[in-house]
Nucleic acid binder design. Structure first.
Lengths: 229, 229
DNA sequence: TGCTTTCACCGTACACCGTATCGACATGGC
DNA sequence: GCCATGTCGATACGGTGTACGGTGAAAGCA
């Protein structure tokens, strides 16, 4: 939850490149990671603190720093760990459209299940092994389109962008009742004629599964029109 | 070092040397908002703290709570304030495609200029007057498509989703050099054949202005194919 | 005029946070 | 047995948001 500075961690070795400590367990990077994800899943990313994770593991805060260098590392690990669940594995559905669509659907499901993934993604662009596997799988999905390297990357990031945007909208669309009444008041003010005209329909714009399928379809239509002959 | 404890100084200053109490305002919601945005723009959202904003305004932290209820309120205000800059105002370019494209471009520019907007948007879905104006303007842009209320909302949120996703990718794509070398190592491992095959091209997938235009074009193509006859 | 209410400002305190520094201690290699 | 290595932890520092209550000046009212 806490907003991070988008500053430069340029010169640093990423977590994944560092070796895990082995000697004697009693604590491990995996145990820390599991507990952090458990807290994030049930109480939100904001509830994940070094002290909290340590307490749940029956350990003092500073002990965690044997396995990670800073709290941000924990977030990197969490994100990449969740990325593993985004992999379909094995054979992809036949046809690039179905394959890419299946990946997008799975990605959405995982991001909805771990709602903190969207938060982390915004200020964390680090590339872990599992997010690379996700890219690898996506490339396989669109291989038959025979697009150039640049175009291939562009196609799958375009889909990823849409999925991320959609999930963010979806997670934020359970707007409170106070907002609802505020919006109703402001619509009655007459300053928003177009919005008021649409008021009969689904003004909330609440994103859901149906919207996801349809809008993803538009994007895939556009890609299809530009990359098949 | 600068005076650190102004409270001490306050209690010790003789009455006659003290300034006469200022007129009514001395502080205002707008002043707080402006200062918060200034800090966020120059030092990142993480640098925006109640104490910091107060200090820059020559005021004690608790004074801010006369004008806002929670720190989160400040973020809501900042976001909506920035949304005002997303408005094109006046007449939109002719044609729904050009109009919607122009709005999307402007939205991207504003979000890139205030890089904290993406961060806030993730965990803040509140609807302020200016974000409503943005929706209002977008509805006008696609009016000629004559889509139903639900479809109209869907079309413009689909574009907004893509823009948000793209900006997040774009802000995160200045991946550090450490990551680069890590990625190069892992590509050589042979576990990622597809990625390695693409390694000649732009593997980084760094999002930029050109990518934005092209991929936005795909989405608009898809919308066009589904909503024009 | 004096009394009361209102309200902007803020001093203090509390419960958190990440983490630097250093020390205690168990183990493995020599 | 000794030392190097590595895990775990106690303490401390400098931050954070904000609850609570106080203060003094202005505003409303008698």
């Amino acid at each position: 939850m806490a907003p991070k500075d988008r500053g430069e961690e340029c010169g640093r070795t990423p977590v994944w490149a560092r070796e895990k400590q082995q000697r004697r367990p009693a604590l491990s990077r995996d145990a820390i990671l599991d507990e952090a994800m458990r807290i994030a899943d049930t109480e939100g990313l904001g509830a994940v603190s070094i002290r909290r994770v340590a307490a749940n593991l029956g350990v003092r805060p500073m002990s965690l720093y044997t396995y990670i260098d800073r709290k941000e590392d924990l977030f990197d690990l969490m994100r990449d760990n969740a990325c593993r669940a985004m992999l379909l594995g094995g054979a992809l559905p036949g046809g690039w459209r179905e394959a890419l669509g299946a990946i997008a659907r799975r990605t959405r499901q995982v991001m909805l299940h771990h709602s903190w993934m969207a938060d982390i993604t915004v200020y964390n662009s680090s590339v872990g092994p599992n997010s690379l596997r996700h890219v690898e799988e996506s490339i396989r999905a669109v291989a038959e389109l025979d697009a150039g390297p640049r175009e291939t990357v562009e196609i799958l990031t375009a889909v990823d962008k849409f999925v991320l945007g959609h999930v963010i909208f979806e997670l934020g669309s359970h707007s409170g009742l106070a907002e609802q009444s505020y919006v109703r008041t402001i619509l009655a003010s007459g300053e928003f004629p177009e919005l008021a005209r649409l008021a009969g329909g689904a003004v909330s714009g609440a994103a859901g599964g149906d919207d996801f399928e349809r809008q993803l379809g538009w994007l895939l239509d556009g890609i299809e029109a530009n990359f098949t002959r």
